[in-house]
Simulated scan of single mutants.
Amino acid sequence: MTTADVRHQPQQQRFFIAVDSHIAVLEYTLDGDNHCDFCRTYVPFSMRGKGYAELLATAAVSWATEQGYALTASCWYVEKFLAESAGQ
């Protein structure tokens, strides 16, 4: 698996990984009911297949869980990630 520096930008409600001039992102939304929805994951073509989406999802889910948020995913990738994590 790829290792990379996952960064969090709370003001933009996103996690990202920058490699050269490319940026992979996982975006989320928060509501007033202590709920976090992971709504979008994007990995540029040049970064795909290297584990970046999984790194983003791992960091984002870990952060949201530590914050005590209820988690949902309208993003298909994070939905799959959460389902697989629950099955382990």
Rank of each mutant, 00 (worst) to 15 (best):
Q88M: 15
L71Y: 00
S62D: 05
A60Y: 04
T29W: 09
L55I: 02
A83D: 10
A86M: 02
F15Y: 10
Q67C: 03
E79G: 11
A57C: 03
Q9H: 09
R48L: 09
C75K: 14
V19S: 12
N34P: 03
Q67F: 00
I17A: 11
Q13R: 04
L30V: 08
T2W: 04
H35R: 15
E54D: 03
K80R: 14
D37M: 01
E27N: 07
A59L: 11
A18P: 09
A86G: 13
L82Y: 05
S21H: 13
E84L: 12
D31N: 05
E79L: 04
A18C: 10
R7C: 12
M47N: 08
C39T: 13
R7A: 09
D31T: 11
Y42A: 07
H22K: 10
C36W: 14
A4R: 08
A70S: 10
A60R: 05
W63S: 00
Y69G: 00
G51H: 03
Q88S: 15
Y69D: 15
T2Y: 14
C75H: 12
L71W: 07
P44E: 03
E66K: 14
T65N: 07
A59T: 05
A24F: 11
K50P: 08
Y42P: 06
A59V: 05
A4Q: 09
K80F: 00
S46W: 09
A18W: 01
A64E: 03
S62Y: 06
I17N: 02
T65W: 01
F16M: 13
Q13H: 15
Y77F: 13
Y77P: 09
V78W: 13
T41C: 02
H35Y: 07
M47Y: 05
M1G: 15
A18N: 02
Q9S: 11
H8V: 14
S74W: 06
F15G: 01
V61P: 13
G51F: 07
D37Q: 13
A53I: 01
M47F: 04
A64D: 00
V19M: 06
M1H: 14
M47T: 13
L82V: 10
T2F: 07
Y77K: 08
L26V: 10
H35V: 14
T3F: 15
G49H: 10
E27T: 08
E84N: 14
A53R: 09
S46K: 07
C75L: 05
C75N: 02
D33R: 14
F45E: 04
I17K: 02
E79I: 09
K80W: 02
S74I: 10
W76E: 13
G49Y: 07
S62N: 09
V25W: 08
Q11S: 11
G87I: 15
P10K: 06
A83I: 00
E54P: 02
S46D: 05
Y52F: 06
C39W: 02
L56N: 09
Y52G: 01
Y28T: 10
E79V: 15
D31H: 03
M47A: 04
L82F: 06
Q67A: 08
S74T: 01
S21G: 01
C39I: 12
S21C: 13
R7L: 12
C75M: 13
V25N: 00
K80H: 14
